[in-house]
């Protein structure tokens, strides 16, 4: 049995993954899944979120600028409530993310985990690893020229 803290941590994990996922890829992964009906609690809405930074990287906050975000909330017939806040202006992306969030709280969690979240996590890790590997190749290896030997 998971503690409430573990449940929140797991949910934060999949919600973030869904928010960062390429919208088309999430759509493709859900194509063959049978998705349940739902009622909107909040229809998809695109807005701006003011992103903050810290002075000197570590100090007091300041406003850096906004980013586009689309949010929505829905309830399945079985009662689970799914939320989404996803980067960008794609309403279908937000809807799919909220559906997966709701399904992850019910009997279809294992199915969603293996058919949607696991591939998204693996692909994100590969994208990040790919950039880190290119960055690593541009790391300078200093050597000192020794004179007079």
């Amino acid at each position: 049995m998971e503690t409430p803290e573990q449940e929140i941590a797991a949910r934060r994990g999949w919600m973030g993954l869904l928010a960062r996922a390429p919208a088309q890829r999430l759509a493709a992964l859900l194509e063959s899944a049978e998705l349940p009906g739902f009622d909107w609690l909040r229809v998809p809405e695109t807005g701006g979120v003011m992103v903050r930074g810290r002075m000197g990287g570590t100090g007091a906050p300041f406003n850096l600028g906004e980013m586009t975000v689309t949010r929505c909330a829905l309830r399945l017939a079985s009662g689970e409530v799914g939320h989404a806040h996803v980067q960008g202006r794609n309403r279908a992306h937000a809807e799919r993310a909220a559906l997966v969030d709701a399904l992850m709280q019910g009997a279809r969690a294992d199915e969603m985990q293996s058919s949607v979240l696991a591939p998204l996590a693996a692909e994100e890790a590969a994208r990040r690893e790919g950039r880190a590997a290119k960055a690593a190749a541009t790391k300078v290896d200093f050597f000192t020229m020794v004179r007079g030997e």
């Binding site: 809405e45 695109t46 807005g47 701006g48 979120v49 003011m50 992103v51 903050r52 930074g53 810290r54 990287g57 570590t58 906050p61 406003n63 850096l64 906004e66 980013m67 586009t68 975000v69 949010r71 806040h85 990040r128 950039r131 880190a132 290119k134 960055a135 541009t138």
Partner: peptide, 23 residues
């Protein structure tokens, strides 16, 4: 365009120490 967007809120300050650096 920005002025037409409803403000949904603000983020926590971004943690640049955790940046995955390209450079």
């Amino acid at each position: 365009y920005r002025t037409t967007l409803p403000r949904l809120g603000h983020s926590a300050p971004v943690e640049t120490t955790a940046m995955r650096c390209d450079r």
